[in-house]
Simulated scan of single mutants.
Amino acid sequence: MTTMAARPEYRLLAELEAAYDGLVDSTEGLVATWRASRGAAWAFPQGVVDADWLHAVLMDFWYQDGQDGRSTRSHVGLVAADAAVMEQAARVNAAKQAFAALLARIREQAPSLIPEIKAVLPFRHPGLHGHLSGSGLARLHLKQCWRALPLAPAPVARVRLAWYASGRSIKRLTVRDAEQRLLALDTEAPHVRIQLRKLAGLPADEPLAQVQPQAPLMRANLFFRDPLPDGHARRAMNVALPLFVPSEDGRLPDHNQPPPGPPERRTRARRRDERLEEAPLLPSLRIYRYRN
């Protein structure tokens, strides 16, 4: 007789628990290593910050009351990192990658475990979870666990931060792609059946577009002291978490103070939107036809 612990899905759960422990332990190690380095740190919009701030934002694995499950909280900042700190930050990203890979396997092989994962993992580290009970932060936000730390690949002369508000992303789909997405919904629902009939009337080779609204994000333009091996002297990175920049003297590169909020008008997506019909073909999936 197969015991519960021997069932494949519970072996996956045990592996994920170990991966979560590794993620927490490596993150604690990163904060401790940076604290000992006495490097500088700056956060937007607070200004100069310390290791307690870094610990709080790197361990922000939780939902807030009313938070959309598809969204994540941003913690924009810069952290001066010596070689030991950069090495430990790379270990954290490796732990995050391992956690994400196991989670993807579980979603594919045993998706019914996901609610249990969110309920069980927080209690593995009572010090992290204890102060959250009753505060609306006791549910684990899996994406906030595995999103990677941004790491500058070389010493940076200056950083320019700017809001990027594209408004929406547009993903090209085939008719078959759209059909598969519709079939994953409740096909007994009248509105889904109507959309399937609409789709059936299209040529199989007609391209479609799925539109996804995007929240504004902060982008960092890095200007390196010396060109990278590929010859580039600058690079742009999205920075939803603190950016670690190599710095042996513990000082931060020159950086700007971006505006407190994103621009009200979106800029680049408009031209792509104008190629789409005004009304969605499949409202349930935000899928549009291209204009003729």
Results as ranks from 00 to 15, higher is better:
V24P: 11
R219Y: 02
K171P: 02
L103E: 09
A240G: 08
R73Y: 01
L196A: 12
S112M: 12
A200I: 11
F244Y: 07
D60I: 05
D52I: 09
K198Q: 10
L54D: 10
H191E: 15
T33G: 03
G77F: 15
L113F: 03
P126N: 00
L285Y: 13
Y288M: 05
R235N: 03
R147Y: 12
P155Q: 08
R225A: 11
E108Y: 04
F223H: 11
Q67W: 06
V24I: 14
A6L: 11
P262E: 09
R266M: 12
P246W: 02
A138I: 03
A165F: 00
P122H: 09
D50E: 15
R158V: 01
V24Y: 14
Q144M: 05
E116T: 15
R168Y: 08
E179T: 13
L142C: 06
D230S: 09
E28A: 13
P153G: 13
A204G: 04
L113W: 12
L196W: 12
L182E: 04
P262V: 04
G231E: 12
E278I: 07
R70C: 01
R105Y: 13
D65K: 04
D21S: 08
L285I: 14
K171I: 02
A84Y: 02
P260S: 09
D249M: 02
V48I: 11
L137H: 14
L58K: 00
T174K: 15
Y290A: 14
L16I: 06
N93C: 13
Q257F: 12
Y290F: 13
V192W: 07
L208S: 15
A81C: 08
F44L: 13
Q88W: 09
R107S: 13
L103H: 15
R291Q: 09
P111D: 10
R265T: 14
P122N: 07
L196Q: 10
H255S: 14
P246D: 06
K143F: 06
L183F: 05
A148K: 12
Q214F: 01
Q64M: 03
K118F: 04
